[in-house]
């Protein structure tokens, strides 16, 4: 199918983008790399009156160091972040997850913040944002605000972004000394949407595990024990409590099984990386 009609607006500054969103918010789809929005337009799941292209706004294409965090601007493409020399040292979990996003041929254009805005429940970047307790910097003509990842993802492809707001940057906490990080996912083929994806952070006391692909948004669990028997028990409890669903790709039971297996393997890897 072909997209329905829309006006195309190319913002040249953040202020211009804010003006368009303030005036026509509910009717606007923000276009960055287009790797999630264009399929929605072509299948007409999205029929905006206005497509607001933000890719030519100067200054948004920047990855920078903040105190204790990495700031990833709205138009930074996934391939650019993957090639950033400070990434593996700055935040190994993000570095581990990036190769799983789509394919090499979509990461060249897809943006980090676009994936956050799209909020697909199997997507890697929202999962990593939740696991690391990152924040999303939203801005509008009214001002700026930061929303933590746990509050930002509100459901299936739904977020806390208001209609007049733009994601200006993602704020990713830097690696903490003494913590180990690991990312694993299971898909039928590399590059497919994950059936289950896991991100784990371990320190000497316990582990935090974030799980994607199972519920309508990524979910995270704190304080998992490192003792193997106790961990298995905890993972059983988590898998049983998750709102897993059957679909074309996997049954709910299979997803729960994967949560146990992948969860354990991911936590084990995070513990190893700590050493």
């Amino acid at each position: 199918m072909k997209p329905a009609r829309f006006d195309y607006v190319r913002a040249e500054s953040l202020a211009e983008a804010h003006d368009v969103l303030a005036a026509e918010g509910g009717e606007v789809s923000v276009l960055a790399g287009g790797q999630s929005l264009l399929p929605l337009l072509s299948t007409r799941l999205a029929r905006p009156r206005v497509v607001l292209d933000i890719m030519r706004i100067r200054g948004l294409d920047v990855i920078s160091h903040e105190s204790q965090a990495i700031r990833i601007g709205a138009t930074v493409r996934q391939a650019k972040l993957a090639a950033w020399p400070d990434l593996a040292g700055g935040q190994p979990l993000l570095a581990a997850a990036l190769p799983f996003i789509g394919h090499a041929q979509t990461r060249t254009r897809g943006t980090v913040c676009g994936s956050i805005a799209h909020a697909d429940p199997s997507a890697e970047i929202p999962l990593v944002m939740l696991a690391l307790e990152g924040a999303i910097l939203l801005s509008s003509a009214r001002g700026q605000r930061r929303v933590c990842a746990a509050e930002f993802f509100t459901g299936l492809m739904s977020t806390a972004r208001e209609e007049d707001e733009l994601i200006e940057a993602a704020i990713v906490p830097r690696r903490q000394p003494g913590h180990g990080y690991a990312f694993r996912e299971f898909a039928r083929r590399h590059g497919d949407f994950a059936i289950v994806a896991c991100a784990a952070i371990a320190d000497e006391r316990g582990a935090r595990l974030a799980i994607g692909g199972v519920a309508d948004r990524p979910v995270a669990f704190d304080g998992l024990p490192l003792d193997e028997a106790a961990l298995d028990e905890a993972l059983d409890r988590i898998a049983g409590a998750l709102d897993a669903r059957d679909d074309l790709h996997a049954s709910a039971d299979y997803r729960r099984h994967l949560v146990r297996r992948l969860g354990r393997a991911t936590i084990a890897e995070a513990r190893q990386c700590r050493a």
Binding site: Y8, L31, G34, Q35, L38, D53, A104, T106, T108, R109
Partner: peptide, 11 residues
Amino acid sequence: PARACLMLAVQ
């Protein structure tokens, strides 16, 4: 390399 179907001509 990128998908031509995931880009508008005007982009």
